[in-house]
């Protein structure tokens, strides 16, 4: 998606093209909801943030200049709303410093799984019937993934959501969240590792 495409779409919407507006909503709604939920947590409040955010986006559409991508611009608007909502709800959130969070040491795999020199003592074992398609049809898998996403720290959840659930590029995520390329990578890896561990608890040998 180039900024020119974004500018063209915005021009169509401002000219009153309702189909263009519907296209924008279809294209961008899902990540707005997921990002808001990642940083606000309360589902009802997050949905309110998204609705208010959409109205704010539409109202200020005339001032979109295409210097950043539409997504980066929209993320700024919605994250600001999320911050305000979080302050109202007395939840201190990391939105303000998604990008400046200190990256602390954290293991992707519990140390007890490795021997003294760092090679596998308890290596992972292949999961049975574990094609992604099959897993996506199992209710307990979806529930576990959902619960794990809910337990991730804000910044990890925001990055994982945009990269993997929404399929954004790392550049898009860095711009929208204001995180550096290397921090983005660490946050993404830790989040993925936690979801893997959760799936292992469900699918690994010890669950059988």
């Amino acid at each position: 998606m180039t900024h020119d495409d974004d500018r063209a779409l915005v021009a169509e919407i401002l000219a009153g093209d309702r189909a263009a507006l519907a296209r924008l909503v279809a294209r961008e709604h899902s990540w707005l909801v997921r990002l808001a939920r990642a940083v606000v947590r309360d589902k009802a409040v997050a949905d309110e943030v998204v609705q208010d955010g959409w109205v704010a986006v539409i109202r200020s559409l005339g001032s979109f200049e295409g210097r950043s991508s539409l997504r980066t611009w929209m993320a700024t608007i919605v994250l600001n709303r999320a911050k305000t909502a979080a302050v109202r709800g007395a939840r201190t959130i990391a939105v303000a410093h998604l990008g400046s969070d200190v990256i602390e040491d954290e293991d992707s795999v519990d140390r007890s799984r490795f021997g003294g020199v760092g090679f596998w003592a308890k290596p992972p074992e292949p999961w049975e019937n574990s094609s992604p398609e099959a897993l996506l049809h199992r209710r307990e898998v979806l529930a576990r993934v959902d619960a794990t996403l809910g337990e991730l720290p804000d910044a990890q959840r925001a990055v994982l959501t945009l990269r993997d659930l929404e399929g954004w590029s790392s550049e898009e995520v860095c711009n929208a969240l204001g995180v550096s390329e290397s921090n983005q990578r660490v946050l993404l890896h830790r989040a993925r590792a936690k979801v893997r561990t959760a799936l292992e608890e469900l699918l690994g040998p010890e669950s059988r």
Binding site: V25, A26, H29, S30, V33, R34, V109, P123, P124, E125, P126, W127, S130, P132, E133, L135, L136, V141, L142, V145, L160, D164, L165, E166, G167, R192, A193, V195, R196, L199, E200
Partner: peptide
Amino acid sequence: CYRAQLHTTVDVLKGLPPEEP
């Protein structure tokens, strides 16, 4: 095996249905 499981994990995440407006 660990890497394959990470790939499976990502594929599951990518397969979650989008939020509908």
